[in-house]
């Protein structure tokens, strides 16, 4: 393991410890932090696609798909360790089918096809009212963890722990993946896709692999959201929810696997605090924050932090 990887591992573990500490000190934030991590996991998948220069405006589809899968399965199978793989599987499978279609497209067509499919799913959730209760949504029963029924307090902790473990796992995986030939091929796609093809690498398959992975991660995020809020509604699939995921990716910075989580914490905390201070204009505050980040720190929160760290040695005369 390289020094840098070790450093990042330590940083990730420290971040996890801080999250747990804050959740212990401020009980009401535990919920917000769990949701933030769930969204961060979904955004990790967006990050993969961003590497290839593709922006999906419909990944809320996979979040919602897995959340609903969990909500439908939970009454018969209220076990977190089964619901998570189930959600990942459902999202991954649909991601594969949709992916086979959408990886033929680039840029706006890619983005808008994803948006269209998520909006179709949104309408389906409304139309099959008898099954889904439409906007009223479905409530999940209490979830067991490794067969143990927990009280609401313990269940909250368990979900947060599961979320952190998944975040660490997926974070490490994406980091390795991006450095692997498949990951390098994604970056190559962004610069000049044709060159990739000349080298005999099928660009569509590279993108498809990333797409399915991103669907799986969005699915895991969706199941965690469902287990945390214990109430799923079609709003999870609305196009603005997809926009939110892209928003978080850019807010955090697409340069590192830490970005999505930084972005998600930044987003959820800004929203929560803005809503608490000015219930009327939280959207405006969020917009101004995003605009500020884009204009003054296009590398996102991660880039901001890194350049702040770098500036110090530069001041000492190092190049």
């Amino acid at each position: 393991m390289s020094r840098r990887a070790l450093l990042e591992l330590v940083a990730a573990l420290a971040a996890a410890a801080i999250v747990l500490l804050v959740a212990a000190l401020v009980p009401w934030l535990r919920f917000v932090l769990t949701i933030a991590i769930a969204k961060g996991i979904a955004v990790l998948g967006i990050l993969l696609l961003l590497r290839a220069g593709q922006v999906s405006f419909g990944h809320a589809l996979y979040v919602a798909l897995a959340a609903y899968a969990a909500a439908f399965a939970a009454p018969r199978m209220p076990e977190a360790l089964l619901l998570l793989p189930l959600g990942a599987l459902v999202s991954g499978a649909v991601g594969l089918v949709v992916g086979l279609f959408v990886v033929r497209y680039r840029e706006i067509f890619f983005g808008m096809l994803n948006l269209a499919l998520s909006m179709v799913f949104y309408s389906v959730l409304e139309k099959f009212y008898a099954l889904t209760h439409g906007t009223d949504g479905i409530r999940l029963p209490a979830i067991r963890y490794v067969g143990t029924a927990l009280g609401p307090e313990e269940a909250g902790w368990a979900t947060l722990a599961v979320a952190i473990l998944l975040a660490l796992g997926f974070g490490a995986f994406v980091r390795v993946y991006l450095l692997s030939p498949m990951g390098e091929a994604l970056s190559a796609m962004k610069t000049r896709e044709t060159r990739l093809e000349f080298m005999g690498i099928p660009a569509r398959r590279v993108l498809l692999a990333a797409y399915v992975l991103s669907a799986v991660m969005a699915g895991c995020g969706g199941v965690i959201i469902a287990m945390t809020t214990r109430h799923v509604t079609p709003a999870l699939a609305y196009w603005t929810a997809s926009g939110e995921l892209v928003f978080i990716a850019i807010l955090g910075g697409a340069g590192s696997v830490f970005g999505p989580f930084l972005g998600a914490f930044g987003y959820e905390l800004t929203r929560t605090y803005a809503a608490a201070l000015v219930a009327d204009a939280w959207q405006m505050i969020l917009g101004i924050v995003l605009l500020g980040v884009i204009l003054f720190a296009p590398g996102g929160l991660w880039g901001m932090g890194r350049s702040a760290l770098r500036r110090r040695p530069a001041g000492e005369g190092a190049a």
């Binding site: 922006v55 926009g243 892209v246 928003f247 850019i250 959207q283 405006m284 969020l286 917009g287 101004i288 995003l290 605009l291 884009i294």
Partner: peptide, 10 residues
């Protein structure tokens, strides 16, 4: 794209 998203929110 996100500049316009931010403007939309504002």
């Amino acid at each position: 794209l996100l500049v316009t998203f931010a403007l939309f929110m504002i």
